[in-house]
């Protein structure tokens, strides 16, 4: 079983961090993983995306061009990658940032106003974690508690103040009902 993720948004929305959490948890559970970011000056304020592959087999190409799961955090990402999602695949879209809805009938599209939920709950900058929570519920790729545990362990000591906020953000996303 191989799952190809593509996460995309503006630089600074925490796309790369979210992808890394998925890859790291995959690795810790004994799966093969790869994480490949877009890179260069575009990372400063422009578009950022990362390919994450989680598989029980050896991973060939680390580049995800036809994702099983697309996480889109801004409109340019939606416009660029929505049509590339594999038939039967999944779209998770931040509806606070992206007014468009997918017209495709061969994918499962989910919408969550993650950026709005973040600012309403004093969790600015954690829309990425809210989305991760929602992604866990939809894809069931990892056990929620285990993922939370790994994510918290990955927060460095000097950012310990963020542990509770991350916990709340992940839970908000996981318990979101459209």
């Amino acid at each position: 079983m191989t799952t190809n993720f593509l996460l995309s948004g503006f630089g600074g929305q925490g796309i790369l961090f979210a992808g890394k959490q998925l890859a790291k948890t995959g690795m810790d559970t004994g799966l093969n993983v790869s994480w490949l970011p877009s890179y260069g000056p575009e990372m400063r304020g422009g578009a950022a995306n990362c390919s994450v592959i989680i598989s029980d087999k050896e991973i060939g190409s680390p580049i995800v061009t036809t994702p099983d799961v697309l996480v889109a955090l801004n409109l340019p990402s939606f416009l660029k990658f929505e049509s590339a999602i594999k038939a039967g695949g999944t779209l998770i879209s931040d509806s606070a940032m992206i007014p468009e809805k997918s017209a495709r009938t061969d994918i499962n599209a989910y919408y969550i106003p993650a950026t709005k939920m973040a600012s309403e709950n004093g969790l600015d900058g954690l829309a990425n974690v809210i989305i991760l929570g929602y992604l866990l519920k939809i894809t069931k790729i990892f056990d929620y508690e285990m993922f939370l545990d790994h994510m918290i362990k990955g927060i460095p000591p000097h950012k310990a103040a963020l542990i509770d906020k991350n916990r709340v953000a992940l839970s908000l996303g996981y318990n979101y009902n459209e």
Binding site: S34, W35, L36, Y39, I59
Partner: peptide, 10 residues
């Protein structure tokens, strides 16, 4: 190459 340099793997 740039991909190998930038990508993360276990």
């Amino acid at each position: 190459d740039g991909a190998l340099g930038q990508m993360m793997e276990p």
